[in-house]
């Protein structure tokens, strides 16, 4: 058999090349982390953990120069979670509709249109938010909210337009396709035998979805939501255009804010020295935050994939 040795070599070569490619991903991640850490060395050593909880940000060189990331962490978390609160019910609703309720011929087009939302560039969302959504919010939504719910700290103050609410609504629309398409796949993975079991017990479709399908899909859906959160945390362009870019830590959605991504986008081009280091450290924080969340999401999605039927066989 003269050929087998060559075949074996080819296999080994192929495996080596594929392994190299796979390793590159890990290396790139590490290089990013190391580069960010190095470039933020100055503020890392100057402030330590105080950087994360520091509330003041004054990049003017001199005695008053100080850097704290908390307002940006706050802005990022508030806009992201508000976006989630708006987007999750809608996207799970869309996913349930497509996976469980819609007639066959409508499923694919609906899914396609929702996924199309993901293809719209971020800057377009920013423009649309500014020119279309902002006037609508100022004219109709903001006055109603402050009139009826103005007694809550969340709706206090005078709506100015570029604020947390506007950024969050646009963010919600942007993360909708992510959450709904992942949720749809999760729902599709729910075994049909369980749906039939519920229906055969005299469940209505709604009872079947609520008591059997959603509980089965729960951890996978959580994963979908976290993937959406990951997108929202890192979103830069649209948020920078809409959020107002004023580092503040107000509870009110009518206040402008700044996010980790928006402060970097705004100040990086002119930053020098310590400010450069501070901005890079914010980048490092954001990187760590999204990384942790994505790993969490993967674990959850993986868990739902291997949950039930297998447990019986094991």
């Amino acid at each position: 058999m003269p050929g087998w040795r060559i075949g074996n070599l080819g296999d080994r070569l192929f495996r080596g090349i594929a392994a190299t490619f796979a390793t590159i991903i890990v290396v790139v991640l590490l290089v990013i982390a190391v580069a960010l850490t190095q470039a933020s060395r100055e503020t890392l050593s100057a402030y330590g953990f105080g950087f994360v909880v520091g509330q003041d940000w004054n990049p003017v060189e001199g005695a008053n120069e100080v850097y704290g990331a908390l307002p940006f962490v706050w802005g990022t978390l508030v806009t992201s979670f508000l976006a989630l609160a708006l987007a999750v019910p809608i996207s799970v609703g869309i996913a349930v509709f497509i996976a469980e309720l819609a007639p066959e011929w409508i499923r694919t087009p609906t899914g396609f249109v929702v996924e199309l939302l993901a293809a719209v560039p971020s800057v377009i969302y920013g423009l649309w938010g500014f020119f279309v959504l902002r006037p609508v919010l100022i004219e109709h939504v903001d006055p109603a909210l402050s009139r009826w719910l103005g007694f809550l700290p969340f709706f206090r103050g005078a709506p100015l337009g570029n604020d947390v609410l506007l950024a969050s609504v646009v963010l919600a629309i942007m993360i909708l396709p992510t959450i709904s398409s992942v949720s749809r796949e999760i729902l599709r993975a729910v075994p049909n035998t369980l749906r039939e079991a519920a229906l055969a017990l005299g469940a209505t479709k709604w009872e079947m979805i609520r008591s059997v399908v959603l509980p089965y899909a729960k951890s996978g859906l959580t994963g979908a939501v976290i993937l959406g959160l990951g997108r929202a945390l890192g979103e830069t362009m649209a948020v920078t255009m809409l959020v107002g870019n004023k580092p503040s830590m107000s509870l009110s959605v009518f206040e402008p804010a700044a996010t980790m991504a928006s402060i970097i986008a705004n100040q990086y081009p002119e930053a020098q020295g310590r400010q450069h280091s501070a901005l890079t450290e914010i980048g490092l924080l954001l990187f760590a935050l999204t990384l942790v969340l994505n790993i969490l999401a993967r674990l959850l999605v993986w868990r739902v994939g291997r949950l039930p039927g297998d447990a019986g066989r094991a």
Binding site: T193, E196, A197, A200, L201, V212, Y216, L307, G312
Partner: peptide
């Protein structure tokens, strides 16, 4: 009532 080919208790 109905009993199916593949046992399908609700795993959750």
């Amino acid at each position: 009532g109905m009993v199916f080919q593949k046992p399908n208790p609700f795993p959750t």
